[in-house]
Design a protein around this nucleic acid. Sequence first.
DNA 1: TAATACTATATGCATGTTGCAAATAGCCGA
DNA 2: TCGGCTATTTGCAACATGCATATAGTATTA
Lengths: 121, 121
Amino acid sequence: MDNEKVKELELTLSMERFIQAELLLLLKQKPSHGYELIQRLDDSEFKSAEVDAATVYRNLRRMDKEGMIKSQWEVGESGPGRRLYKLTTQGEEYLIVWTQYIVRQKIKLENFLEAYLRFNQ
Amino acid sequence: MDNEKVKELELTLSMERFIQAELLLLLKQKPSHGYELIQRLDDSEFKSAEVDAATVYRNLRRMDKEGMIKSQWEVGESGPGRRLYKLTTQGEEYLIVWTQYIVRQKIKLENFLEAYLRFNQ
DNA sequence: TAATACTATATGCATGTTGCAAATAGCCGA
DNA sequence: TCGGCTATTTGCAACATGCATATAGTATTA
């Protein structure tokens, strides 16, 4: 990813979309489909409070459209068809940007807590 | 604050509103008016990227209405009138809830980073 | 004196994201 | 056949934000 792209991505990053980072990380660990990701997310230690299925599916479609992940429609021997998602190279790079952003967020929170404690002695 | 109230507050908390926690902490340190808070925020190590004045003023009005802070209109010898904000007891309690929430957020981010690193060697 | 800049707050509007609810659909067990 | 689980999608209201703009008093400077 070129620098311009990274800058643009960083600007649109927000904790509101933290779900994207969570999904990218899970997909880096192994390809999954939405329903499974919801369950894996629910088991992870970094999940956001409650996982809303609609939010997961919507973010998956968006990242698919943006090329971060790639989907493939699968019709198994049983159950309804499902979309298997895999991380793309671009998605891996995006995950790195996310990780750097999260490091900065963490520092910001630490600074807040430090200031809070400093003032409460 | 009773437990029900705390629960309700925690549910509506989100990093999107982190600005509220920042403002409450600054007001705990000392009473200020909006314009000054924007400058103090800009100098703090925990500020969110850029501070939008409208967002600051709107959040101050909201927290005023909700009783977290209390405003008092001041007409100085010079310059336009301004609203001096002070933290209320309820606001102090809310700041504690925020702080606990931020601790949990920080842990979440640490868990994410740990999972990320664990998977990258 | 007029123009400009700074202090100080408020509001309108478009945009983007979310949660909840509901629709669709295949499969399986009782 | 009815309910329940797997699996995904879409509509809608609610909400928060950024940007632009309005308003207004004061101070500086050309």
